[in-house]
Each structure stands twice: as structure tokens, then as C-alpha cells.
């Protein structure tokens, strides 16, 4: 895809339709539909417990939806596992990071896609590449041989982000990748997202509670509420104030109803 003004719309890489998911008595998602175009960054916002992480985990093959369709690159798929989604180019930074404290930084960065010189692990290659990715990203971590348990929250998050960003994924799902980041590291991750966007190859869904940060990088914002997408606008058509109003207005309405 070349730069400059495009006459043709970029194709859709992902579309989910009427997704529903419940956990026992809790209906996490009732009817979610959204789409993602190639090279696009979609901001997904919503209250705590709105179901954002659940939606992400359905798209990445971790949860299976109770109902609905998932269409990847124009083809309907039934995602059987995380590996399956990954083979379609979908990779995830989970909200809980999915790091193993007992393992080193580089083993975590290559968890379940280890470099292997059969039958052994190629630790040297993984160490070198992990070092290089972190340097490229500008993340400061003393040693890739350190156990992850010893790192700070922000460093851990950086490792989780690096692991997905450098995985050659075509669709990246970032579930609150900025939550534990200091101002500088947060900017660093946002820069990374912007870089990826400029290259136009990767499409991203990013969840964050800081609307200013969301608007800084995304092309479009979706609001997840009451188990479905209730709001879908381009960045130019919205603002931090409007997004805040949307969410808070709902909260106020609830309160007056309850009180």
C-alpha cells in the first residue's frame, strides 16, 4: 500500500458481528459488532467491566463466543485456540500481561514461539533478539537474563508489548498497554503504535482509559457499553470532552435512577 491520497478504501482485515458471551450468570457481551480496516488504529473504550477484555480474548481465540461471527481478511473463521488466531496473524498484549515470573526476560519474550534448534532451545538467538527488540523500542532493562519477577510494573508491560509488536502480527490487540507506564514510557509505546500505523501494514485495536492518549494515536473510537458498541466516530469528529461526557453522563443517569 502506497502513501498519499487513496482513492480506494483500505480493505477490512477484521469484522466481528453480533458476538455474545456469558460467564455463568454474567452476560459480558450481548451483541457486539465492529470492524477494523487495514492499517487502522481503533480505540476501544468503556467502563470497568464493560467487556473490553472479554471481546479481545474472543478475537484472539482465548474464549469462544456463544454466538456471532468473526471474519478475518474476508473469511469467516471459528477460532479454536490462541495458536489458531496467531496463525492468522492476530497477536495480543493481555491486560494481565501473561508473563511468567520464574522465567527470564528473553524466555518471556519468546514464550510459545521459542527459537529452537531442534531439540534444544536456541537461547543465544533469543537473548540477542530480545536485547535488540528492547533497544529498538528504547526500553531500559538492565539484563534480558533477569527473572521477570525482579522488574518494575512498567518494564513488565514493555516486555509484553515488545513480544507482540515484534511477532510479525498483522492484527494487534493491545489491552491497556499503557496502564503501568510512566509518562515517558507511555509516550514511547504510543510512538511505537504510530510507527506501526505509518507503515500501514498492521491494524491495531487499543484499549485505554486515558482518552487523551487514545485520541492521540487512533483513527476511530468505539465505545463498548451494555454489552454492545454504542458509539463509533472518527477521531476528527470527537474529543476528550465528548468521550468523557458520554461515559460520565451514563454514570450520572444510573445514579439518579438508583438514588
Amino acid at each position: 500500500m502506497t502513501g498519499g491520497p487513496n482513492v480506494t478504501e483500505p480493505p477490512e482485515v477484521l469484522r466481528v458481528e453480533h458476538i455474545a458471551k456469558r460467564f455463568g450468570a454474567v452476560e459480558a457481551l450481548s451483541d457486539v459488532s465492529l470492524y477494523l480496516k487495514k492499517g487502522e488504529v481503533l480505540g476501544l473504550i468503556g467502563d470497568n467491566g464493560a467487556g473490553k477484555s472479554t471481546l479481545i480474548k474472543i478475537i484472539c481465540g482465548f474464549h469462544q463466543p456463544d454466538a456471532g461471527k468473526i471474519i478475518v481478511n474476508g473469511e469467516e473463521v471459528t477460532l479454536k485456540s490462541v495458536d489458531h488466531a496467531r496463525s492468522l496473524g492476530i497477536d495480543t498484549v493481555y491486560q494481565d500481561l501473561a508473563l511468567v515470573n520464574e522465567l527470564t526476560v528473553y524466555h518471556n519474550m519468546f514464550l510459545n514461539r521459542e527459537v529452537v534448534r531442534w531439540p534444544l532451545l536456541n537461547n543465544r538467538a533469543m537473548r540477542k533478539r530480545a536485547r535488540q527488540y528492547l533497544d529498538d523500542m528504547g526500553v531500559r532493562i538492565q539484563s534480558v537474563e533477569a527473572e521477570v519477577a525482579k522488574l518494575s510494573g512498567g518494564q513488565r508491560q514493555a516486555i509484553a508489548v515488545a513480544r507482540s509488536v515484534y511477532s510479525d502480527a498483522k492484527i494487534l490487540l493491545l489491552d491497556e498497554p499503557l496502564a503501568a507506564m510512566g509518562a515517558k514510557e507511555g509516550a514511547l509505546i504510543l510512538d511505537l503504535v504510530r510507527d506501526l500505523k505509518d507503515r500501514g501494514e498492521v491494524s491495531i485495536i487499543i484499549i485505554a482509559h486515558n482518552y487523551a492518549q487514545v485520541l492521540e494515536v487512533c483513527d476511530r473510537v468505539n465505545l463498548l457499553q451494555h454489552g454492545g458498541i454504542t458509539y463509533d466516530k472518527r477521531r476528527a469528529e470527537t474529543s476528550v470532552a465528548e468521550l468523557t461526557d458520554l461515559v460520565v453522563a451514563e454514570y450520572r443517569a444510573h445514579r439518579t435512577k438508583g438514588g
Binding site: F62, S81, Y94, D96, L99, V100, N112
Partner: peptide, 9 residues
């Protein structure tokens, strides 16, 4: 980290 391992596939 059982959950994390599953999340990693």
C-alpha cells in the same frame, strides 16, 4: 503462571 501460559497459547 497457568493463566498466562494459556493466554500465550
Amino acid at each position: 503462571n497457568l493463566l498466562g501460559a494459556r493466554e500465550a497459547g
